[in-house]
Simulated scan of single mutants.
Amino acid sequence: MTPTAAAPDTRLRSLLRFDAAACAAFGVLMTAGAVLVERLLGLEPAWAVPLGVYLLGCAVALALVAGYPVPLRGHVIGVVANNAAAAVALAALPFTGLVDLTALGYAVLLGGAALVALFAVLEAQGAKRLTA
């Protein structure tokens, strides 16, 4: 396969779509499965539901950015900034004393922070390849 000018856009678009799908999946879990989330993770519905709504909003925004005919650098930089802030918040929350997480809850939030940080790094690399 010969690399083309569209290849970076295609990779970035796929990454944005995967990020959107992950946000949608966890958003649905946090909102519709709030009782289960509380039981397994220790994250009360008062935290899980707003987090889920935020993730669903992120999923829509990511899908819109990924759907542009040509991804715009400014939009992708906004995605990167949001992901960076979310990664910091997810990594910090377990240690604030505001939530009483189970061991699995710590693992899920810290794992989620790592995943979101990875998305931020990869999407930032994609943004650097964009011309507009």
Rank of each mutant, 00 (worst) to 15 (best):
A132Y: 07
V76M: 12
Y68N: 07
V65Q: 08
A120M: 04
L115E: 06
V37C: 08
L16F: 08
A20F: 04
G112P: 11
E38P: 00
A61K: 04
F18H: 12
P45S: 12
V65N: 02
F119L: 13
A59S: 15
A86E: 10
G112Y: 07
L16S: 07
T131Y: 05
G74C: 08
L62R: 09
V35D: 11
G97T: 08
A103E: 06
C58A: 15
C23F: 06
M30Q: 10
A84E: 05
R73W: 10
G105A: 11
A6Q: 11
A124N: 04
A103L: 12
V99Y: 08
D100N: 10
V116C: 09
L62I: 01
R11D: 14
V65L: 12
V28F: 05
V116H: 01
E123M: 07
L118M: 14
G67Q: 07
G105R: 01
A87C: 03
E38L: 05
A81C: 06
A81D: 02
L15W: 03
A59M: 09
T102D: 09
V35H: 03
P71S: 06
N83A: 14
A117C: 05
V99A: 06
A120H: 04
E44I: 03
Y68G: 12
A92V: 15
Y54L: 15
V37E: 06
T4Y: 02
L15H: 02
R11W: 11
V37S: 08
T131S: 14
P50Q: 07
T131D: 09
P69T: 05
P69S: 02
G57D: 11
L62C: 13
E123R: 00
L72I: 14
L16R: 00
C23M: 06
V35Q: 05
A84C: 06
A48G: 10
R73N: 08
Y68A: 11
P94Q: 10
G33S: 03
L98P: 00
M30W: 12
N83F: 00
R17G: 14
V53E: 09
L64W: 13
V79E: 12
F119E: 08
A87L: 03
A7M: 15
L36G: 08
G57C: 10
M1L: 13
E38V: 01
P3K: 11
R129G: 00
L109T: 02
V49S: 10
L62E: 14
Q125P: 00
V35F: 09
A127R: 00
F95C: 01
G105C: 09
V88E: 02
L12N: 05
T10C: 04
G52I: 09
A25K: 01
A21M: 05
L43H: 03
W47F: 15
L41H: 06
A22D: 09
A66F: 04
L40N: 06
C58W: 03
A120N: 01
G33Q: 03
A21H: 01
